[in-house]
């Protein structure tokens, strides 16, 4: 009965997350490192994501209205005082691939009225399309604005016959009126984890990567299992002295570039960005 369940697991229900060692017993905690110094802004990750996750191409007009569906987007920034060259606007830009940060304390989760988004045991911020009613509160409360809403019935126009044949069969095609966002290529993880479970092991490092990480020509994106202390991602997080459960990171060594975006909002993101190095002499 639910009441006995309530009493039995009381302390578990009253725990605040994230806490130190939360994923020690868990086989998986998916995380990412993005090296901005390596990123050349080529948009290959975005294209790979469109192909992998059945993202609709919305067209110029709707893109201009802010209806684009890019789960991973390349943002361009210019340093303070720099002027924008009109002939080659990309020149001097710094790039930042922005995707769902899979926050441990995600602001989008508690505000959803129907519980369509919640945290999975392997540390992902999930989105249940079937349950979503489209109140868009999650998007309103997401500080990174990486949640994308189906403003139109995209499948109508995005894949005219016979293009629907190129859709990824492992991924749902979303209907109008639901919210969607980066899933860390959940379908790949799910298949991999199931296979590993059948074999009685856990996934090896690099066995499954997200489409963006796979497509990145400069290997700027590293994806892996943070719960596995020997994985590349876990080592990078350690080297960069970023602790998942802390909102203020102590940096004891010089030259450490790792940071998480908008950490002061206590979102505890799962993606560490490595700051871009600049040649100060020029």
């Amino acid at each position: 009965m639910s009441l006995s369940n309530l009493i039995k697991n009381w302390s578990n229900f009253r725990t605040r997350r994230p806490y130190e060692g939360q994923y020690d017993d868990s086989p998986y905690k998916w995380a990412m490192v993005i090296d901005l110094d390596s990123c050349i802004g080529c948009n290959a990750c975005t294209v790979a994501c469109y192909a992998e996750n059945n993202l609709p191409v919305v067209g110029k007009e709707r893109f201009g209205k802010g209806h684009a569906m890019h789960w991973i987007r390349i943002e361009r920034y210019w340093g303070e005082g720099e002027t924008l060259e009109t002939e080659f606007p990309e020149r001097g830009a710094q790039y930042l691939p922005m995707l769902c940060q899979q926050c441990e304390a995600a602001p989008c989760e508690p505000v959803c009225p129907v519980g369509a988004t919640h945290h999975s045991p392997d540390g992902l911020n999930t989105q249940v399309y079937n349950r979503c009613v489209g109140s868009r509160y999650c998007s309103a409360n997401c500080p990174y604005k990486v949640r994308y809403f189906n403003w139109w019935n995209y499948p109508e126009r995005a894949w005219p016959n016979p293009l629907e044949l190129q859709l990824n069969p492992d991924v749902t095609v979303r209907s109008k009126g639901v919210m969607e966002k980066c899933t860390f290529c959940m379908q790949r993880l799910r298949a991999g984890m199931d296979k590993a479970k059948t074999d009685g092991r856990i996934l090896a490092d690099g066995e499954v990567v997200t489409a963006c990480a796979q497509a990145c020509p400069t290997s700027a994106i590293t994806f892996g299992n943070l719960a596995d202390k020997n994985s590349k991602v876990a080592k990078m997080w350690k080297t960069q002295q970023v602790d998942l459960a802390k909102n203020v990171q102590e940096k004891t060594e010089d030259g450490i570039r790792g940071y998480r975006i908008l950490e002061d909002l206590n979102t505890y993101p799962s993606i560490v960005y490595l700051e871009r190095l600049r040649n100060m002499a020029s």
Partner: peptide
């Protein structure tokens, strides 16, 4: 679809 409202 909600797009006609020009929300984005």
């Amino acid at each position: 679809g909600m797009g006609v409202s020009d929300l984005n």
